Deep mutational scan, measured.
Amino acid sequence: KKYKIKVYVKDKKTKKWKKIKEIEVDTKEEALEAIKKLPPNYEVKIVP
């Protein structure tokens, strides 16, 4: 079972969220580790 991490950042001009990358991992633990490495201003969604 794979997890997709969708990473969004808020556009300063439009104030809208835009997706900047998608990370695919195998476990939820890996997903949480990957999220920890991202800057705090990123919004993250984990999709099972």
Results as ranks from 00 to 15, higher is better:
K1I: 14
K1R: 11
K1S: 13
K1F: 14
K1Y: 13
K1G: 13
K1T: 12
K2T: 08
K2N: 08
K2Q: 08
K2G: 11
K2A: 11
K2R: 13
Y3Q: 01
Y3D: 00
Y3V: 04
Y3I: 07
K4E: 02
K4I: 13
K4W: 07
K4F: 07
K4L: 14
K4Y: 08
K4M: 13
K4G: 02
I5F: 06
I5P: 00
K6I: 15
K6T: 13
K6D: 06
V7D: 00
V7S: 01
V7I: 12
V7M: 06
Y8S: 01
Y8W: 06
Y8D: 00
Y8A: 00
Y8K: 00
Y8L: 02
Y8I: 01
Y8V: 00
V9M: 12
V9R: 14
V9Y: 11
V9I: 12
V9E: 07
K10H: 08
K10V: 10
K10C: 10
K10G: 02
K10Q: 13
K10N: 04
K10M: 13
K10W: 15
K10D: 01
K10A: 04
K10I: 14
D11P: 02
K12V: 11
K12H: 13
K12P: 12
K12T: 09
K13H: 10
K13Q: 08
T14K: 07
T14D: 04
T14N: 08
T14I: 03
K15T: 04
K15N: 12
K15V: 02
K15E: 05
K15M: 10
K15I: 01
K16M: 07
K16T: 06
K16H: 06
K16L: 07
W17P: 01
W17I: 02
W17V: 02
K18M: 09
K18E: 04
K18I: 14
K18P: 00
K19V: 11
K19E: 05
K19R: 04
I20K: 04
I20V: 14
I20Y: 07
I20R: 03
I20F: 06
I20P: 00
I20G: 01
K21V: 10
K21L: 14
K21T: 13
K21H: 11
K21D: 12
E22Q: 05
I23V: 07
I23P: 00
I23Y: 13
I23A: 02
E24F: 14
E24H: 13
V25E: 01
V25R: 02
V25I: 06
V25K: 03
V25N: 00
D26L: 08
D26T: 08
D26C: 09
D26E: 11
D26R: 06
D26P: 04
T27P: 01
T27G: 07
T27Q: 02
T27V: 02
T27M: 02
K28D: 04
K28H: 14
K28Q: 12
K28L: 15
E29A: 11
E29K: 08
E29H: 07
E29D: 10
E29L: 10
E30D: 08
E30C: 04
E30V: 03
E30R: 04
A31N: 00
A31W: 06
A31Q: 02
A31K: 01
L32N: 07
L32C: 14
L32M: 13
L32H: 09
L32W: 14
L32D: 09
L32V: 08
L32S: 06
E33H: 06
E33I: 10
E33F: 03
E33R: 11
E33V: 09
E33Y: 04
A34P: 00
A34Y: 15
A34D: 02
I35C: 06
I35F: 03
I35K: 04
I35Y: 03
I35E: 01
I35M: 08
K36E: 07
K36A: 08
K36R: 13
K36T: 08
K37F: 06
K37D: 11
K37C: 07
K37P: 03
K37A: 14
K37H: 13
L38T: 02
L38M: 12
L38P: 02
L38G: 01
L38I: 09
L38R: 02
L38C: 05
L38E: 02
L38S: 01
P39F: 14
P39A: 09
P39V: 05
P39E: 06
P40A: 12
P40K: 14
P40L: 09
P40F: 08
P40D: 07
N41T: 11
N41L: 10
N41Q: 11
N41Y: 14
Y42L: 10
Y42E: 03
Y42N: 04
E43F: 15
E43P: 05
E43N: 13
E43M: 15
E43A: 15
E43I: 15
E43L: 15
V44F: 13
V44W: 15
K45S: 07
K45L: 15
I46E: 01
I46D: 01
I46C: 09
I46T: 03
I46H: 02
V47W: 12
V47S: 10
V47F: 12
V47I: 13
V47A: 05
V47G: 05
V47N: 05
P48Y: 12
P48F: 13
P48I: 15
P48N: 10
P48R: 14
